[in-house]
Design a protein around this nucleic acid. Structure first.
Lengths: 344, 344
DNA sequence: CTGTTAGCGCGTTCAT
DNA sequence: ATGAACGCGCTAACAG
């Protein structure tokens, strides 16, 4: 059995309270007793039982990280950011996978009530109706805002970012720009679509509904979008996809359809994942500071649990347009090519 | 404040022992008292304080999952497998990032000693010398074996799997086959290289050292390998890369060098990541049952903590060759093309 | 500065 | 079948 504080106390010839103090507030004991105690600690190899400490202190130092889909590679850098700050602050991160399942969310949310964890970082984009927001006192939202929620949150401004992406295409001279969205039940997706529309409106271009395809953030829907545009004969020279995976799928399909990127069609993605850099051609994309978002979310949690008033409810993380080889000015021949498609 | 068992007891007019029993062993109390108690539980919304329960039981139900690099996308499906079984068995998973840092490993390993966690799942491929294996009683190794370790483990047979990949190329008729390895300090990488050599030897082909390039599992080293082979004029029609990321990098560079895949060169990857399917052409690869590896690792942990004797020390997960469009028989013209390269 | 005492919330004897 | 009492290991009053 591991040695307890009692064993150390008798070995040092002091009370357990003194041992506790020596370890927690060394300044509060005499030099002499401190040495006796530390000696005994070394001899026994005593390490305080954290479970007992936490129980006594009524704190677990656990934080639940609940995500919608644990296998989403987008989260990886966020995991790192959260783990970094948790580690540095003595917190532990419990991984939870919501998996589109209300029951799972409830069980993880309950961990805070049950005192299995002190706080909850939500990256699900939704909470079940059965969980009133008022029952989430120690909660921070990250990445995906929840509609109508007033909980403290850190995220990017998706609308503004999508506008930035679209304006890049506009500034290159593109006039007919298509958009592949994410699932429209996600706030994130509707926001990005709005940003796309904002940019067009800002340039005085009427949006053509036929140039918007509702996707699902996966590779296949990028391909499907291109097939649909091709089948309906839609002409465009610019394409904005709401994430990189769909952008890569789109490029893949465009190649099959005999289109070149960027000479025929310029493509902008969103997220700046690793494969944006390694795709062919390297993808122009919107970079989110993912690791920083993770760090900030955990920092907010630390502050929240420390009882500090949060500086601001919502924290907006900045984004950046990363221009690579998938975008270029449109040229006459490519415009022709597109037109040919449209009349086929 | 959350209601305690004491509050429920007085509301039901019984002792706390009876409340405890009613919840744990309902058969041991009268129908009548059971109803009184359950009524009181409902009224108060009582939920046992898990921290207190765990403390009393001397168990935390936490398991530390320590990985070498938390951002490795390969782990994603393993995370899911582990979380699934943990959730189903009432365990919680603490995420730990080793990050090539001994001190971090030590701190996470210590969590078991400190009773912050009951067990440890190691996916680091190494433990610091300062941590003797004997001090890891509740540990399971997953995915990456640790040299010389006898701890229970679940992993694939990398050597056999690499042989399978190489034999696929041989069976298509390829005779000159190149190999891009992972970092050679990882057991995994040396094993895969051995498997490659095994296959060649089995086919009676002398291995050409000039056809092996030491990579680092990243996109760039796949590209670099192709540039090197090209520069030194090495001729080959088959290529086996020790992971998919390098394979995609290689294909990318081959395209720049004017080679077609698979008509000029056939490429086999390893891991069967999502982007194996979405690359151009879709990649032939070795599929590891990643989710299943995660599930089995957690199952071993559950058994271990339950005091069950583990069925077997090591558990071998099976692999599968997934044939896609990046491999084909060599043909005369492609052999010519390669030879041209070699004489340039 | 140090020791004594009193719990944190619960499960679990041992009586009854 | 039920209740009283104890203690898991530690920290935080309060005395001295």
């Amino acid at each position: 059995m591991a040695p307890t504080i009692r064993r150390v106390a008798e070995l040092a010839g002091v009370s357990i309270a003194t041992v506790s103090r020596t370890l927690a507030q060394p300044g509060k004991v005499t030099e002499a007793t401190r040495e006796k105690v530390l000696d005994a600690v070394r001899q026994t190899g005593f390490v305080p039982n954290r479970q007992a400490v936490d129980f006594r202190r009524q704190a677990t130092n656990n934080v639940v990280l609940l995500v919608r889909d644990i296998t989403n590679p987008f989260y990886l850098e966020i995991y790192r950011g959260i783990e970094e700050l948790a580690f540095a602050n003595g917190y532990r991160v419990l991984m939870g996978d919501a998996g589109y399942d209300d029951a799972r969310v409830v069980r993880y949310v309950d961990m805070v009530r049950n005192r299995q964890a002190d706080g909850l970082i939500l990256m699900t984009g939704w909470i079940p109706d059965s969980v009133p927001e008022a029952s989430l006192p120690q909660t921070v939202i990250a990445l995906e805002l929840i509609e109508g929620s007033t909980l403290p949150a850190v995220a990017i401004d998706n609308r503004k970012a999508a506008r930035l992406a679209t304006e890049h295409l506009l500034s290159l001279g593109h006039r007919r720009i298509a958009h592949v969205t994410g699932p429209m039940r996600l706030v994130m997706s509707t926001e990005r679509h709005q940003g796309y529309l904002d940019a067009l409106a800002g340039a005085g271009i009427a949006a053509d509904p036929a140039l918007t395809h509702v996707g699902d953030f996966h590779f296949g829907s990028g391909q499907a979008a291109m097939r649909q545009f091709h089948a309906q004969g839609s002409a465009f020279t610019g394409l904005f996809c709401s994430n990189d995976e769909m952008a890569v799928g789109a490029i893949n399909e465009l190649r099959s359809l005999g289109k070149r990127v960027p000479s025929d069609i310029s493509v902008v993605g969103f997220d700046d994942m690793d494969y944006a850099l390694s795709s062919d051609p390297p993808l122009t994309s919107i970079r989110q500071p993912r690791r920083e978002i993770g760090r900030q979310a955990m920092q907010m949690m630390v502050d929240l649990l420390a009882g500090k008033a949060l500086a601001s409810g919502h924290l907006e993380a900045g984004v950046e347009l990363v221009v690579r080889a998938s975008t270029a000015p449109p040229n006459a021949s490519s415009a022709d090519a597109s037109r040919v498609t449209s009349t086929t």
